[in-house]
Structure formats: C-alpha cells, structure tokens
Amino acid sequence: SIVTKIISIVQERQNMDDGAPVKTRDIADAAGLSIYQVRLYLEQLHDVGVLEKVNAGKGVPGLWRLL
C-alpha cells in the first residue's frame, strides 16, 4: 500500500542520514506522488502516532520522523 511505502521511505532515509528527519518533498519524490497527496498521508500517520512532525510554520518545509 502507499502508506507502507511512505513508512519504508522515511525509515530508509532516516537510516541513511543518522536519524535525521525527512522532508515532505523528498518523501513525495521517492513515492512518485505530489507533495499534497503525501502530506495527507503523513498527517494521517501522525494522527495515529506513527510519525512526528519535527517542525511547523507557514512556508517551512515539513520534516518528519518515525516514532
């Protein structure tokens, strides 16, 4: 499923980069989806406690990390 793919992308990127959070844009590119589509999935995963959003604010790139 797309959700499983997104989780594995975040996991893979974090492992490659010493646990650093992953940008929404990088996840979207790797999943082959638009940034808006991916954001909806990321928000859902956040709501159920799978991911945390590391930063927030208007015009700030979203950074995500697995919990």
Score class of each variant (00 low, 15 high):
residue 59 G to H: 06
residue 20 A to K: 13
residue 8 S to M: 13
residue 32 G to S: 06
residue 23 K to I: 03
residue 11 Q to S: 11
residue 37 Q to W: 10
residue 56 A to M: 10
residue 52 E to L: 06
residue 7 I to D: 00
residue 44 Q to M: 15
residue 67 L to I: 14
residue 61 P to F: 12
residue 13 R to P: 03
residue 51 L to E: 05
residue 28 A to Y: 02
residue 62 G to V: 15
residue 17 D to S: 15
residue 36 Y to K: 14
residue 33 L to F: 04
residue 35 I to Q: 05
residue 29 D to M: 12
residue 45 L to A: 01
residue 66 L to P: 03
residue 47 D to N: 13
residue 6 I to F: 01
residue 40 L to D: 06
residue 17 D to A: 15
residue 37 Q to H: 10
residue 62 G to W: 10
residue 23 K to H: 10
residue 33 L to P: 00
residue 10 V to M: 15
residue 37 Q to T: 11
residue 65 R to A: 08
residue 21 P to F: 08
residue 1 S to K: 10
residue 1 S to T: 10
residue 9 I to V: 07
residue 37 Q to P: 01
residue 64 W to P: 15
residue 59 G to D: 09
residue 13 R to M: 11
residue 50 V to L: 09
residue 48 V to Y: 11
residue 12 E to T: 11
residue 23 K to V: 03
residue 5 K to S: 05
residue 40 L to W: 14
residue 59 G to N: 08
residue 66 L to E: 03
residue 10 V to Y: 01
residue 50 V to P: 03
residue 30 A to N: 04
residue 58 K to P: 13
residue 54 V to M: 05
residue 45 L to N: 00
residue 36 Y to D: 13
residue 4 T to D: 12
residue 24 T to A: 04
residue 41 Y to I: 14
residue 54 V to D: 02
residue 47 D to F: 12
residue 44 Q to S: 10
residue 37 Q to A: 10
residue 19 G to E: 04
residue 65 R to F: 12
residue 35 I to T: 06
residue 18 D to L: 11
residue 23 K to D: 08
residue 11 Q to M: 12
residue 2 I to R: 04
residue 7 I to V: 07
residue 24 T to L: 03
residue 33 L to T: 03
residue 53 K to D: 09
residue 14 Q to I: 04
residue 11 Q to F: 10
residue 56 A to K: 09
residue 20 A to M: 09
residue 41 Y to A: 05
residue 36 Y to M: 11
residue 45 L to E: 00
residue 10 V to R: 08
residue 25 R to G: 08
residue 54 V to T: 04
residue 22 V to A: 04
residue 58 K to Q: 11
residue 27 I to A: 00
residue 32 G to K: 06
residue 21 P to L: 07
residue 67 L to S: 13
residue 21 P to N: 03
residue 13 R to G: 03
residue 67 L to H: 12
residue 56 A to W: 08
residue 40 L to H: 10
residue 51 L to M: 11
residue 10 V to I: 15
residue 46 H to P: 06
residue 58 K to F: 08
residue 26 D to F: 08
residue 22 V to Y: 01
residue 20 A to Q: 10
residue 13 R to Q: 07
residue 15 N to V: 09
residue 47 D to K: 15
residue 3 V to R: 11
residue 26 D to L: 04
residue 62 G to N: 15
residue 15 N to C: 15
residue 39 R to A: 12
residue 61 P to I: 10
residue 33 L to H: 02
residue 32 G to T: 02
residue 4 T to W: 14
residue 50 V to Q: 04
residue 11 Q to T: 09
residue 17 D to W: 14
residue 9 I to L: 05
residue 5 K to T: 09
residue 54 V to H: 03
residue 30 A to S: 07
residue 6 I to D: 00
residue 62 G to I: 15
residue 56 A to G: 12
residue 34 S to M: 05
residue 40 L to P: 10
residue 11 Q to P: 00
residue 19 G to A: 05
residue 43 E to Y: 07
residue 22 V to D: 00
residue 2 I to C: 10
residue 21 P to Y: 09
residue 9 I to F: 14
residue 43 E to R: 06
residue 31 A to G: 02
residue 66 L to S: 04
residue 67 L to F: 09
residue 20 A to R: 13
residue 41 Y to C: 07
residue 1 S to V: 09
residue 31 A to W: 03
residue 66 L to W: 08
residue 25 R to P: 04
residue 60 V to M: 14
residue 31 A to P: 01
residue 26 D to C: 04
residue 30 A to H: 05
residue 5 K to P: 00
residue 52 E to K: 03
residue 7 I to K: 04
residue 53 K to R: 10
residue 33 L to K: 01
residue 39 R to S: 13
residue 22 V to I: 06
residue 48 V to I: 15
residue 28 A to R: 02
residue 10 V to G: 00
residue 8 S to H: 11
residue 64 W to G: 02
residue 2 I to V: 08
residue 15 N to Q: 10
residue 25 R to Q: 13
residue 32 G to N: 08
residue 44 Q to F: 15
residue 6 I to L: 08
residue 57 G to C: 07
residue 15 N to F: 11
residue 25 R to F: 06
residue 20 A to D: 07
residue 31 A to Y: 02
residue 13 R to T: 03
residue 8 S to N: 12
residue 36 Y to T: 12
residue 16 M to K: 13
residue 39 R to H: 08
residue 2 I to F: 06
residue 29 D to V: 12
residue 6 I to M: 02
residue 33 L to D: 04
residue 47 D to S: 14
residue 57 G to P: 07
residue 54 V to S: 03
residue 44 Q to G: 07
residue 26 D to W: 06
residue 49 G to A: 02
residue 60 V to W: 15
residue 2 I to E: 03
residue 50 V to T: 04
residue 50 V to E: 02
residue 35 I to D: 06
residue 35 I to V: 11
residue 49 G to I: 15
residue 22 V to C: 05
residue 43 E to G: 04
residue 17 D to I: 08
residue 20 A to C: 09
residue 5 K to C: 13
residue 21 P to K: 03
residue 65 R to Q: 07
residue 26 D to A: 08
residue 46 H to I: 07
residue 27 I to T: 01
residue 8 S to D: 08
residue 30 A to P: 01
residue 5 K to H: 07
residue 8 S to W: 11
residue 7 I to M: 07
residue 25 R to E: 14
residue 1 S to G: 11
residue 12 E to Q: 09
residue 19 G to D: 06
residue 41 Y to N: 00
residue 7 I to S: 01
residue 7 I to R: 02
residue 37 Q to R: 11
residue 64 W to K: 03
residue 22 V to F: 07
residue 40 L to I: 14
residue 16 M to S: 09
residue 41 Y to T: 04
residue 61 P to R: 10
residue 2 I to P: 03
residue 40 L to R: 12
residue 49 G to S: 02
residue 13 R to V: 05
residue 48 V to A: 14
residue 16 M to D: 07
residue 47 D to W: 12
residue 63 L to F: 08
residue 46 H to F: 09
residue 61 P to H: 14
residue 23 K to N: 08
residue 20 A to N: 11
residue 35 I to M: 12
residue 27 I to C: 01
residue 5 K to R: 12
residue 57 G to F: 05
residue 4 T to S: 13
residue 66 L to C: 07
residue 46 H to Y: 09
residue 44 Q to D: 08
residue 25 R to S: 13
residue 20 A to W: 05
residue 51 L to Q: 00
residue 23 K to P: 13
residue 28 A to V: 03
residue 15 N to T: 10
residue 27 I to V: 06
residue 19 G to N: 08
residue 39 R to N: 12
residue 51 L to C: 02
residue 63 L to M: 12
